Amino acid sequence: MLAVKNVSFSMQDKQILHNLTFSIDQGKFVGIIGPNGSGKSTMLKIIYRHLKQTSGVLTLCEKDLGHFAQKKLAQELAVVTQETPVVFDFTVRDLVMMGRTPYKKWLASDNQDDFAIVEDSMRLANVQHLQSRTFNQLSGGEKKRVILARALAQQAKILILDEPTNHLDIEHQYQLMDLVKGLPITIVAALHDLNLAAGYCDKLLVMKDGALYMEGTPEQVLTEETMKQVFQMQAGVSRNPFTQKLHLFFYTEHEKGLGKN
Results as ranks from 00 to 15, higher is better:
residue 149 A to R: 08
residue 152 L to S: 02
residue 165 T to D: 09
residue 165 T to K: 06
residue 252 T to S: 15
residue 29 F to P: 00
residue 161 L to D: 03
residue 189 A to D: 04
residue 131 Q to G: 03
residue 57 V to I: 07
residue 18 H to E: 02
residue 163 E to V: 03
residue 89 D to H: 09
residue 11 M to N: 13
residue 28 K to Q: 13
residue 163 E to M: 08
residue 143 K to H: 06
residue 66 G to V: 06
residue 191 L to H: 07
residue 13 D to P: 03
residue 255 E to M: 13
residue 108 A to N: 03
residue 29 F to T: 03
residue 117 I to T: 11
residue 149 A to F: 03
residue 62 E to F: 06
residue 151 A to V: 07
residue 62 E to V: 08
residue 150 R to S: 12
residue 130 L to Q: 06
residue 83 E to F: 00
residue 59 T to A: 05
residue 70 Q to A: 12
residue 34 G to A: 12
residue 197 A to W: 08
residue 175 Q to A: 12
residue 253 E to L: 11
residue 190 A to M: 10
residue 81 T to G: 01
residue 240 N to F: 08
residue 115 F to R: 15
residue 148 L to F: 02
residue 244 Q to Y: 12
residue 142 E to G: 06
residue 58 L to E: 07
residue 87 V to E: 07
residue 121 S to V: 05
residue 194 L to A: 03
residue 36 N to H: 11
residue 46 I to R: 03
residue 254 H to V: 14
residue 90 F to N: 04
residue 88 F to Y: 09
residue 30 V to L: 00
residue 219 E to P: 04
residue 22 F to E: 01
residue 110 D to V: 02
residue 106 W to A: 09
residue 66 G to H: 01
residue 244 Q to D: 15
residue 217 T to S: 15
residue 131 Q to N: 12
residue 141 G to H: 05
residue 104 K to D: 00
residue 157 K to Q: 12
residue 144 K to H: 04
residue 30 V to Y: 03
residue 35 P to R: 14
residue 110 D to A: 11
residue 118 V to T: 02
residue 171 E to G: 04
residue 154 Q to H: 01
residue 3 A to M: 15
residue 213 Y to H: 15
residue 18 H to P: 06
residue 74 A to F: 11
residue 193 D to F: 06
residue 91 T to H: 06
residue 247 H to T: 15
residue 51 L to D: 08
residue 125 A to V: 03
residue 167 H to V: 13
residue 10 S to R: 14
residue 52 K to P: 05
residue 126 N to R: 07
residue 72 K to L: 02
residue 231 F to L: 09
residue 216 G to R: 11
residue 95 L to R: 09
residue 152 L to V: 00
residue 234 Q to P: 06
residue 38 S to W: 13
residue 256 K to W: 10
residue 253 E to G: 10
residue 236 G to S: 11
residue 222 L to G: 05
residue 97 M to W: 02
residue 140 G to N: 02
residue 219 E to R: 12
residue 125 A to T: 04
residue 126 N to P: 00
residue 175 Q to Y: 04
residue 64 D to L: 01
residue 149 A to S: 08
residue 70 Q to C: 05
residue 14 K to L: 10
residue 211 A to K: 14
residue 261 N to M: 11
residue 201 C to D: 03
residue 170 I to F: 07
residue 111 N to G: 15
residue 160 I to S: 07
residue 128 Q to R: 09
residue 224 E to D: 15
residue 238 S to K: 10
residue 82 Q to Y: 04
residue 105 K to A: 07
residue 148 L to W: 02
residue 11 M to C: 00
residue 134 T to S: 15
residue 192 H to K: 00
residue 150 R to E: 04
residue 250 F to A: 15
residue 126 N to T: 06
residue 248 L to W: 14
residue 37 G to E: 13
residue 189 A to G: 05
residue 47 I to L: 07
